[in-house]
Amino acid sequence: MTTKLILTHDVSKLGSAGDVVEVKDGYARNYLLPRKLATPWTKGAQRQIDQMTEARRKRSIASLEEAQTARAWLTENVVTVTATAGANGRLFGAVTTAALAEAVKEADGPAIDRRKIEVVPPIKSTGRHSASVRLHPDVVAPLEVNVVAER
């Protein structure tokens, strides 16, 4: 059995906010709906879909040229993040995507949405790490991160 849903947030390997998708019942019931990543599809939900796509359009980087400019900045620069760490360089927690977006902004970089940053595996130690940022449906930029211990 499948369930028809409207995604309210971007879900990797499934779709972006505003998309109508059909998924298996268990995936919808146990993952997407409890985490509020999707809502059940109804005939009257078309207006909601239109509002979400309009909000996403305003929030996203407008054009491909802007995305390529942002990618050029991200590939040329290394972003430094300070975090609380123990004596052996292991962090207390992990570096969040919000902290990465804020660090890019503080370094006079492009404004990027924290939800578009993917960090695999999580950053849990000091040193040099890499992440990726989906700036545009056609543009993915690498993000180099240098994590230093807070003094």
Rank of each mutant, 00 (worst) to 15 (best):
T8I: 00
P110C: 08
N146G: 07
L14Y: 12
D108W: 15
A62C: 08
P142R: 01
R71K: 15
E106N: 08
Y27R: 04
G26C: 12
R29G: 01
H129M: 01
G18K: 09
A107C: 06
G89L: 02
T80S: 02
L100E: 03
T69G: 12
E76K: 11
S125M: 10
P110W: 03
H9G: 07
G89E: 15
G109F: 10
W73A: 02
D113G: 09
P40K: 13
V120F: 12
R56I: 11
K13Q: 09
A101R: 10
A98H: 15
T69V: 11
D25I: 10
I123Q: 00
E106Q: 13
K24F: 12
L33R: 03
T80G: 07
K4P: 01
G86R: 04
K116Q: 14
V147I: 08
R90N: 01
T97Q: 09
A94N: 13
T8W: 07
P121S: 10
T39N: 09
E22A: 10
P110Q: 05
E144T: 12
W41C: 03
P110V: 02
P40D: 14
T82R: 15
H129N: 05
H129T: 05
R128I: 14
G109Q: 07
R90E: 11
L135M: 05
T69H: 03
Q48K: 02
T80E: 05
R114H: 08
E76S: 04
D10S: 08
T42C: 00
D25F: 11
R29C: 03
K36Q: 07
A85M: 01
L91T: 02
L91H: 02
A111P: 13
R29I: 02
A70T: 09
S125Y: 14
E22N: 06
G93R: 04
T69D: 05
T126W: 12
G18D: 01
I123F: 02
A85E: 06
V81Y: 04
K13A: 13
L5Y: 04
E66F: 07
A85Y: 07
D50N: 13
S125K: 14
Q48D: 01
E150C: 06
N30S: 10
A72M: 09
A55Y: 08
D113R: 04
Q51P: 00
P40L: 15
I61D: 00
N146T: 15
V104F: 04
L143N: 11
D19P: 14
V23I: 01
K43M: 03
G26W: 14
P110M: 05
I123L: 01
T39A: 06
H129I: 03
K124T: 09
E118A: 12
K4M: 01
